[in-house]
Write a protein that binds this DNA or RNA. Structure first.
Length: 479
DNA sequence: GCCA
DNA sequence: CAGTACG
DNA sequence: TGGCCGCTACTG
């Protein structure tokens, strides 16, 4: 029995599931999932290539460890790591992960606390009311588990495209009658015209999302409401087909349609692109992107007017001696230091540009920089057109204490959770609006890192620049 | 786990 | 807030 | 060595 790519992919998926149940590093789990996808979509027959003694191509997301596992599986038909994991996790438990609402943490609680290993055992436990007593579970969860098993939702069931389209048409007609609805559309794999569709993804635009969600959940064919909120709702139809609805404002329609059409992998790739750092410009006007930081401008560079730059943090253009950087498009930033020079380099701004430079400097001999940090955050300089930023540059602060506390400092405007940057920076405001902020010395050339003490990621410099979101779907930088 |  | 979910 | 999609959204 020759090993097919699909078998290798399945083995990696199993490893991912089992690792998740063991509370492994989620990124390690993701690495196995990525590898499964890459191998599963690969046309080249890996086992045949190995059997023929030919070298394997470099596959994205597959390094030396995973390649060794592929070779092991292709030649022996077994994967020791998988078999070891299977021994450590009770058999059948991975099946429970497929139930809605059950992820690795809850499944683990089920088999550790209740010794529930299989779907029938789980159904019995749910009917006995033993599940609701577990931490993280409630009566509602328990009821949903029982219903899901009874409706055999555990098994993966996909619908043929044409069948799914009929369900979608009827639902869209129903959605059009919801209060304030302007646009309705089917997205997801249905819109991508996949041969089969696992669930329906519907999109609507309306000012009041919650009202549309409520209307949606009252569709007569609905068997169960999985969730219903301000912008999103999920139901299961009597046929077992799950339907997800997303409601966004009218101006977000295009970007939301893009997001909700997916695929997931496509969305992730788009978001990674949106984090790109511009380093130069090609003849066609497209920007080459890299993920390094900060941006070193070592040749004369012009950023075209149609590129809107937004500096979130750590955004410094380092302009080499004698080099000119011309920014024609809009530039948006908080109170950052975003330019630095060596010698005769210069920056010219022709676009709409404001609040780009912190005036952050301090007298010799001062060791407590609290007041100066405050000034750095609060003081900004607005540029006029064609003005050189060079005149406003100040040397960055070098911190001498391991930590600084800023008291009574408030940040107005924007969202809670906005990124504010001080020179080389992290995030300043607590995205939940916590009043206490603190400043922590970083390492290397990180200067300082600013956090809120709760959602603080040490030495997290994020990216330099982002493509500015223009309207678009909330939270989606790809629009 | 992979990658820069 | 953690857990789970969505593309 | 430190990133890894999302100012994700919903539930209990």
């Amino acid at each position: 029995m020759p090993v097919k790519n699909a078998d290798i992919a399945a083995a990696f998926e199993q490893i991912a599931d089992l690792l998740e149940l063991q509370n492994a590093n989620p990124f390690r789990v993701r690495a196995y999932r990525n590898a499964a996808r890459v191998v599963g979509e690969l046309k080249l027959d890996l086992a045949a290539t190995i059997a023929a003694g030919r070298p394997l191509p470099k596959l994205p997301g597959i390094g030396s460890d995973l390649e060794a596992k592929i070779r092991e599986f292709a030649t022996t038909g077994r994967m020791a790591a998988l078999e070891r994991l299977k021994k450590e996790v009770p058999a059948g438990v991975a099946e429970l992960l497929k139930l809605p609402g059950l992820g690795p943490k809850r499944v683990r609680a089920l088999y550790e606390e209740l010794h529930v290993h299989t779907l029938p055992q789980l159904l019995r436990a749910a009917r006995d009311g033993r599940i609701r007593s577990l931490p993280g579970f409630g009566a509602k969860t328990e009821q949903r588990i029982a219903e899901a098993i009874e409706r055999q939702l555990g098994q993966v069931k996909r619908f043929k495209l044409a069948i799914a389209a009929q369900y979608a048409d009827a639902l869209l007609a129903h959605l059009k009658r919801a209060p304030g609805v302007v646009e309705v559309a089917a997205a997801g794999s249905l819109r991508r015209a996949k041969e089969t569709v696992g669930d329906l993804d519907l999109l609507a635009t309306a000012p009041d999302g919650a009202a549309v969600c409520r209307h949606f959940t009252q569709y007569p064919d609905v068997a169960e409401v999985l969730q219903s909120g301000e912008t999103r709702a999920s139901v299961v139809l009597k046929s077992g087909l799950q339907v997800d609805l997303r409601v966004v404002p009218q101006e977000s329609y295009g970007a939301a349609l893009m997001y909700f059409t997916g695929s997931k992998a496509h969305n992730i790739r788009l978001r990674r692109l949106a984090q790109a750092v511009f380093t130069n410009e090609s003849a066609s006007g497209w920007q080459q992107v890299t993920f390094a930081s900060p941006v070193a401008v070592t040749a004369n560079t012009t950023i075209p007017a149609n590129v809107h730059l937004k500096v979130l943090q750590n955004g410094i253009f380092q302009v080499a001696d004698g080099v000119k950087l011309i920014i024609n498009g809009p530039l948006e930033a908080g109170p950052h230091q975003i330019f630095s020079w060596s010698g005769s380099g210069a920056i010219f701004i022709r676009g709409n540009c404001k609040e780009v430079l912190a005036e952050w400097f301090y007298p010799e001999g001062v060791t407590d920089h609290t007041d100066y940090i405050k000034k750095a955050v609060l003081a900004t300089k607005q540029f006029d057109s064609y003005e050189s930023a060079k005149d406003y540059w100040r040397p960055p602060v070098i911190l001498t204490k391991p930590s600084y506390t800023i008291a009574n400092l408030t940040f107005g405007g924007g969202w809670t959770g906005d990124y504010y940057a001080i020179s080389l920076v992290g995030r300043l405001s607590n995205h939940r609006g916590a009043p206490v902020l603190w400043v922590k010395a970083g390492s290397g050339n990180n200067g300082i890192v600013v956090g809120d003490g709760t959602n603080f990621q040490d030495n997290n410099l994020f990216e330099n620049l982002r493509i500015q979101k223009v309207g678009g779907y909330p939270g989606d930088n790809t629009g």
